[in-house]
Protein backbone atom coordinates (compact mmCIF):
# COMPACT_ATOMS: atom_id res chain seq x y z
CA UNK A 1 0.00 0.00 0.00
CA UNK A 2 1.09 3.44 -0.81
CA UNK A 3 4.83 3.18 -1.10
CA UNK A 4 5.17 6.05 -3.51
CA UNK A 5 8.33 7.90 -4.39
CA UNK A 6 6.22 10.96 -4.79
CA UNK A 7 8.49 13.58 -3.28
CA UNK A 8 10.65 13.96 -6.38
CA UNK A 9 7.68 14.24 -8.68
CA UNK A 10 5.67 16.65 -6.54
CA UNK A 11 5.46 20.02 -8.20
CA UNK A 12 5.02 23.42 -6.61
CA UNK A 13 1.63 25.22 -6.58
CA UNK A 14 2.42 27.52 -9.51
CA UNK A 15 4.07 24.83 -11.59
CA UNK A 16 3.29 25.00 -15.31
CA UNK A 17 4.00 22.64 -18.16
CA UNK A 18 7.56 23.33 -19.43
CA UNK A 19 6.42 22.93 -23.04
CA UNK A 20 3.91 25.77 -22.57
CA UNK A 21 6.49 28.01 -20.90
CA UNK A 22 9.10 27.19 -23.56
CA UNK A 23 6.62 28.15 -26.28
CA UNK A 24 6.04 31.56 -24.67
CA UNK A 25 9.67 32.39 -23.83
CA UNK A 26 13.12 32.16 -25.44
CA UNK A 27 13.89 29.07 -23.30
CA UNK A 28 13.93 25.49 -24.53
CA UNK A 29 11.95 22.84 -22.66
CA UNK A 30 15.09 21.49 -21.00
CA UNK A 31 16.13 25.02 -20.00
CA UNK A 32 12.73 25.54 -18.37
CA UNK A 33 13.30 22.28 -16.49
CA UNK A 34 16.70 23.54 -15.36
CA UNK A 35 15.10 26.80 -14.25
CA UNK A 36 12.77 24.70 -12.15
CA UNK A 37 15.81 23.38 -10.25
CA UNK A 38 16.88 26.97 -9.55
CA UNK A 39 13.32 27.95 -8.66
CA UNK A 40 13.05 25.11 -6.13
CA UNK A 41 16.20 26.31 -4.39
CA UNK A 42 15.09 29.93 -4.28
CA UNK A 43 11.52 29.15 -3.24
CA UNK A 44 12.53 26.94 -0.33
CA UNK A 45 15.33 29.05 1.10
CA UNK A 46 13.12 30.44 3.91
CA UNK A 47 9.53 29.23 3.43
CA UNK A 48 9.22 25.77 1.95
CA UNK A 49 6.02 26.42 0.02
CA UNK A 50 7.21 26.41 -3.59
CA UNK A 51 6.73 30.14 -4.03
CA UNK A 52 9.34 32.89 -3.95
CA UNK A 53 8.58 35.39 -1.19
CA UNK A 54 10.14 38.84 -1.16
CA UNK A 55 12.48 37.84 1.68
CA UNK A 56 13.72 34.90 -0.42
CA UNK A 57 14.23 37.18 -3.41
CA UNK A 58 16.22 39.59 -1.24
CA UNK A 59 18.18 36.74 0.30
CA UNK A 60 19.17 35.48 -3.17
CA UNK A 61 20.17 38.94 -4.38
CA UNK A 62 21.87 40.33 -1.29
CA UNK A 63 22.46 37.28 0.96
CA UNK A 64 20.33 39.17 3.45
CA UNK A 65 16.58 38.61 3.77
CA UNK A 66 15.99 42.03 5.30
CA UNK A 67 18.05 44.13 2.90
CA UNK A 68 15.58 46.48 1.24
CA UNK A 69 16.34 48.11 -2.06
CA UNK A 70 14.02 50.19 -4.23
CA UNK A 71 15.10 48.52 -7.47
CA UNK A 72 14.92 44.98 -6.11
CA UNK A 73 11.44 45.86 -4.81
CA UNK A 74 10.45 47.01 -8.29
CA UNK A 75 11.80 43.84 -9.90
CA UNK A 76 9.94 41.67 -7.41
CA UNK A 77 6.76 43.66 -8.02
CA UNK A 78 7.01 43.21 -11.80
CA UNK A 79 7.83 39.51 -11.53
CA UNK A 80 4.74 39.11 -9.31
CA UNK A 81 2.34 39.47 -12.22
CA UNK A 82 -0.67 38.17 -10.24
CA UNK A 83 0.03 40.76 -7.51
CA UNK A 84 -0.38 38.22 -4.73
CA UNK A 85 2.89 38.97 -2.97
CA UNK A 86 4.79 35.91 -4.21
CA UNK A 87 6.42 34.73 -7.44
CA UNK A 88 5.27 31.37 -8.76
CA UNK A 89 7.15 29.24 -11.27
CA UNK A 90 5.27 30.50 -14.33
CA UNK A 91 5.85 34.13 -13.34
CA UNK A 92 9.51 33.39 -12.67
CA UNK A 93 10.15 31.83 -16.08
CA UNK A 94 8.14 34.36 -18.09
CA UNK A 95 9.81 37.32 -16.36
CA UNK A 96 13.30 35.85 -16.65
CA UNK A 97 12.57 35.26 -20.32
CA UNK A 98 12.79 39.02 -20.88
CA UNK A 99 16.35 38.88 -19.52
CA UNK A 100 17.38 36.14 -21.95
CA UNK A 101 20.07 37.27 -24.44
CA UNK A 102 17.77 36.23 -27.29
CA UNK A 103 14.66 38.04 -25.99
CA UNK A 104 13.41 40.89 -28.21
CA UNK A 105 15.05 44.24 -27.42
CA UNK A 106 11.60 45.84 -27.50
CA UNK A 107 10.56 43.63 -24.56
CA UNK A 108 13.64 44.66 -22.60
CA UNK A 109 12.99 48.35 -23.28
CA UNK A 110 9.35 48.00 -22.21
CA UNK A 111 10.26 46.10 -19.04
CA UNK A 112 12.86 48.73 -18.07
CA UNK A 113 10.25 51.45 -18.62
CA UNK A 114 7.87 49.74 -16.21
CA UNK A 115 10.67 49.44 -13.65
CA UNK A 116 11.24 53.18 -13.70
CA UNK A 117 7.56 54.11 -13.87
CA UNK A 118 7.35 53.85 -10.09
CA UNK A 119 3.77 55.08 -9.74
CA UNK A 120 2.54 53.26 -12.85
CA UNK A 121 1.18 56.36 -14.51
CA UNK A 122 2.42 55.32 -17.94
CA UNK A 123 5.15 57.95 -17.73
CA UNK A 124 8.50 58.34 -16.03
CA UNK A 125 8.15 61.63 -14.24
CA UNK A 126 10.94 63.92 -13.12
CA UNK A 127 10.15 63.31 -9.47
CA UNK A 128 10.40 59.56 -10.00
CA UNK A 129 13.82 59.91 -11.60
CA UNK A 130 14.95 62.13 -8.74
CA UNK A 131 13.62 59.61 -6.22
CA UNK A 132 15.56 56.80 -7.92
CA UNK A 133 18.79 58.82 -7.99
CA UNK A 134 18.40 59.55 -4.28
CA UNK A 135 17.73 55.86 -3.57
CA UNK A 136 20.87 54.88 -5.43
CA UNK A 137 22.95 57.47 -3.57
CA UNK A 138 21.57 56.16 -0.29
CA UNK A 139 22.36 52.57 -1.32
CA UNK A 140 25.90 53.34 -2.40
CA UNK A 141 26.78 55.77 0.41
CA UNK A 142 27.74 58.34 -2.20
CA UNK A 143 27.23 61.94 -1.27
CA UNK A 144 26.36 64.52 -3.91
CA UNK A 145 25.34 68.10 -3.33
CA UNK A 146 21.67 68.83 -3.98
CA UNK A 147 22.39 71.20 -6.84
CA UNK A 148 24.47 68.52 -8.58
CA UNK A 149 21.66 65.98 -8.16
CA UNK A 150 19.16 68.45 -9.60
CA UNK A 151 21.48 69.19 -12.53
CA UNK A 152 21.93 65.49 -13.32
CA UNK A 153 18.18 64.87 -13.18
CA UNK A 154 17.37 67.99 -15.23
CA UNK A 155 19.97 67.21 -17.86
CA UNK A 156 18.90 63.57 -18.22
CA UNK A 157 15.29 64.55 -18.32
CA UNK A 158 15.79 67.20 -20.95
CA UNK A 159 17.61 64.70 -23.19
CA UNK A 160 14.99 61.98 -22.81
CA UNK A 161 11.86 64.12 -22.71
CA UNK A 162 12.04 65.38 -26.26
CA UNK A 163 8.40 66.45 -26.14
CA UNK A 164 9.37 68.71 -23.25
CA UNK A 165 6.15 68.16 -21.34
CA UNK A 166 7.66 67.09 -18.02
CA UNK A 167 7.17 63.34 -18.37
CA UNK A 168 8.86 60.63 -20.41
CA UNK A 169 6.46 58.41 -22.34
CA UNK A 170 7.20 54.97 -23.78
CA UNK A 171 8.02 56.33 -27.22
CA UNK A 172 10.53 58.84 -25.84
CA UNK A 173 12.00 56.13 -23.63
CA UNK A 174 12.48 53.82 -26.58
CA UNK A 175 14.24 56.55 -28.59
CA UNK A 176 16.43 57.41 -25.62
CA UNK A 177 17.45 53.77 -25.05
CA UNK A 178 18.22 53.23 -28.73
CA UNK A 179 20.59 56.21 -28.51
CA UNK A 180 22.01 54.92 -25.20
CA UNK A 181 21.92 51.10 -25.43
CA UNK A 182 23.94 50.65 -22.25
CA UNK A 183 20.78 51.66 -20.37
CA UNK A 184 19.39 48.17 -20.85
CA UNK A 185 22.64 46.29 -20.31
CA UNK A 186 21.30 44.89 -17.04
CA UNK A 187 18.22 43.59 -18.87
CA UNK A 188 20.34 40.78 -20.32
CA UNK A 189 21.62 37.95 -18.16
CA UNK A 190 24.35 35.89 -19.91
CA UNK A 191 23.82 33.22 -17.23
CA UNK A 192 20.58 32.29 -18.96
CA UNK A 193 22.50 31.00 -21.98
CA UNK A 194 23.97 28.12 -20.02
CA UNK A 195 21.31 27.51 -17.45
CA UNK A 196 21.37 23.79 -18.32
CA UNK A 197 24.97 23.54 -17.17
CA UNK A 198 24.44 25.48 -13.97
CA UNK A 199 21.24 23.68 -12.97
CA UNK A 200 21.02 20.34 -14.75
CA UNK A 201 17.53 18.93 -14.73
CA UNK A 202 16.88 15.24 -14.33
CA UNK A 203 15.09 14.55 -17.57
Amino acid sequence: MGCFHSKKARKTPGYEDPTVLAAETPFTVSEVESLYELFKKLSSSIFDDGLIHKEEFQLALFRNRNWRNLFADRLFYLFDVKRNGVIDFGEFVRSLGVFHPNAPVADKIAFAFRLYDLRETGYIEREELREMVLALLHESDLILANDIIETIVDETFSQANTKDNGKIDQEEWKEFVLKNPSLIKNMTLPHLMDINLAFPSFV
Partner: peptide
Protein backbone atom coordinates in the same frame (compact mmCIF):
# COMPACT_ATOMS: atom_id res chain seq x y z
CA UNK B 1 30.26 65.28 -20.38
CA UNK B 2 26.59 64.35 -20.15
CA UNK B 3 25.95 62.43 -16.96
CA UNK B 4 23.06 60.08 -17.58
CA UNK B 5 21.02 59.47 -14.42
CA UNK B 6 19.42 56.31 -15.81
CA UNK B 7 22.82 54.86 -16.61
CA UNK B 8 24.01 55.80 -13.15
CA UNK B 9 21.06 53.91 -11.63
CA UNK B 10 21.11 50.86 -13.89
CA UNK B 11 24.84 50.29 -13.69
CA UNK B 12 25.30 50.93 -9.98
CA UNK B 13 22.33 49.51 -8.15
CA UNK B 14 22.86 46.04 -6.75
CA UNK B 15 19.08 45.69 -6.76
CA UNK B 16 19.15 45.47 -10.54
CA UNK B 17 21.75 42.77 -10.67
CA UNK B 18 19.80 39.57 -11.11
CA UNK B 19 22.97 37.61 -11.84
CA UNK B 20 23.16 37.10 -8.07
CA UNK B 21 20.19 34.75 -8.41
CA UNK B 22 22.52 32.37 -10.22
CA UNK B 23 25.69 33.01 -8.29
CA UNK B 24 24.70 33.11 -4.63
CA UNK B 25 23.96 29.44 -4.57
Amino acid sequence: KFFNAFEFISSMSSGFDLSSLFENK
